[in-house]
Amino acid sequence: MSDLLSVTPSGLYCEAGGFYIDPWRPVERAVVTHAHSDHARPGSKRYLCSSACAPFVRLRCGEESAISCLEFGERRTINGVTLSLHPAGHILGSAQVRVEHQGEVWVVTGDYKTEPDPTVEPFELVRCHTLITECTFGLPVYRWPEALAEFERINAWWAANQSAGRTSVLMGYSLGKAQRLLAGVDAGLGPIFAHGAVLGPTQAYRDQGIRLPPVRPVSEAPLDVDWPRALVVAPPGAEATPWMRRFRESATAFASGWMAVRGIKRRRGVERGFVISDHVDWPALMEVVAATGASRVLTTHGYSAVVAKHLSERGLDSSPLETQFRGEAEEEGA
């Protein structure tokens, strides 16, 4: 019997159901886990995603995209295959895809994290026979510090920059990370501004009832603004552009799981790093794999070969899934 899900040139495909999950080429029917660029691509005829995810898919794939929505936990049967979406805790609306056919259950995690985050639906553990998991941070050196403690460090950094007369420019991916940062910092410290790329997703979060502090666009800042008091949230890469000049003296920091490693921080030339990740770390990855009860684990994204080898040594049937996902290798919303 062939696998319920398998990799084709267009992406991960469910032959029995006739749909793709996060395809990398335009297809008839695409189930999308979340709206990061390596998961949601424009051009497919029809999209299926969680209701919370739909506004972001529209932002990414075009207003006119044909999107049908599922509530989390709601089941839909397509050609005898039962499909449902479950919160992945990665960004707002991000989903794991559960696929059931003739009693066999597969779960595709998409990107996910299990630690608490007030801006997303909490991760839901879904039991399954076969698990397809991401491995962006699939090495035992990745173990996140407590996010609350890390946000305390961000606040302290902001306050120190204020006394030193330097504008605090905090960088994080514009969809998901930026909103988590906005929700986590102490907005009482001073005014918060954001780069244009951050504003759209932030408004979409607000529209869905996520409470975020007031944020003003940098481009509309008054001429006499006291920049050194401010926190500016910007996408990574902004630090190398002329856009930064307006702040004159600035302190830059990058919020990402990669910041756990000093060497990576140094190679990227980051002045200050905060370890805040929207992916699972190694212990959480191992926990989730065990808790799903899956006897077969296919790995994708990042350190897929390493994780598969480790799980095989632990007695699981595990191998890397050959996909085009290169992981958010030090680039995206990691």
């Binding site: 035992p140 050196v141 756990a260 490693v261 060497g263 350190y303 390493v306 080898k309 480790h310």
Partner: peptide, 26 residues
């Protein structure tokens, strides 16, 4: 101490770059 195999240590070492830091993280 970390409960991992030798090859996995080497993978970590090459991802982290620095030997002392690899152990500190593991």
């Amino acid at each position: 101490e970390a409960g991992i195999a030798g090859w996995l240590f080497d993978e970590c070492r090459s991802a982290v770059g620095d030997f002392a830091e690899t152990i500190a993280l593991l």
